Simulated assay, not measured.
Amino acid sequence: MKKFGFTLLLLLTSNIYSETINGHTLPPEPDPKINNSTLLGIDSNNNGVRDDVERWIYKTYKDKHPIHIDIAMQAGRAYKKVLETPKRAKEIHNIVSAPVYCEGYFRVFADMFGDTKYIQQKILGTSFDNIYFNISERNNAYLQYQQHLSGDIYLVPRPSKGKNFCDFNTSKYE
């Protein structure tokens, strides 16, 4: 009987990991109760993006230009810093803003000079924030981060320089 239970568990586990989108094996869907019991949630593949967020990104953008996934994953890694250290907002601001600048380059600037329409809908913004900061503790960390930024002036780079803020290999798209 024990052997059967182990085999069944192994089968269930292997089926959870068998979901692949665009060649990427998704982590298993985390139990919401466990995932939301901590600020950082579950990141079973240790790629810096919470599993529920990673699954949402790949499922939401699977039929879009692949750059959507790269930018959203970069934002997921950056937003983790907000949850870890909201009081260091001024130190991490450039990391957290980098995916927005990267998106701006590919949404506005890169599209002006080529035939490829990279991004047809905004990736980062309220929808992404609502997925990432989906419980009150995460939202409070984000508000705390915003409060620590308050009162300062932050320069936004020219859209033509936004590509420099991408943390992935952009040459595969150009």
Results as ranks from 00 to 15, higher is better:
residue 4 F to I: 07
residue 10 L to Q: 00
residue 12 L to E: 05
residue 13 T to E: 06
residue 15 N to H: 04
residue 16 I to A: 15
residue 18 S to K: 04
residue 18 S to A: 14
residue 19 E to I: 08
residue 21 I to D: 08
residue 25 T to N: 15
residue 26 L to N: 14
residue 27 P to F: 02
residue 28 P to V: 02
residue 28 P to M: 03
residue 29 E to N: 08
residue 31 D to T: 08
residue 33 K to M: 11
residue 33 K to F: 05
residue 35 N to A: 09
residue 38 T to K: 04
residue 39 L to W: 01
residue 39 L to T: 14
residue 43 D to E: 14
residue 43 D to H: 12
residue 44 S to C: 07
residue 45 N to S: 08
residue 48 G to T: 10
residue 49 V to S: 14
residue 53 V to Q: 14
residue 54 E to K: 09
residue 57 I to K: 07
residue 58 Y to T: 02
residue 58 Y to M: 05
residue 59 K to P: 04
residue 60 T to R: 08
residue 62 K to P: 10
residue 63 D to T: 04
residue 66 P to Q: 03
residue 67 I to M: 06
residue 69 I to L: 03
residue 71 I to G: 09
residue 72 A to W: 00
residue 72 A to M: 01
residue 79 Y to S: 00
residue 81 K to G: 01
residue 83 L to C: 06
residue 84 E to C: 03
residue 88 R to L: 08
residue 89 A to V: 03
residue 89 A to I: 04
residue 89 A to M: 04
residue 91 E to R: 01
residue 93 H to I: 06
residue 94 N to H: 09
residue 97 S to D: 11
residue 98 A to V: 07
residue 98 A to K: 02
residue 98 A to N: 05
residue 100 V to T: 14
residue 102 C to L: 05
residue 108 V to T: 15
residue 111 D to Q: 14
residue 117 K to D: 11
residue 118 Y to A: 09
residue 118 Y to K: 04
residue 119 I to G: 15
residue 122 K to P: 09
residue 125 G to W: 05
residue 127 S to Y: 07
residue 128 F to K: 14
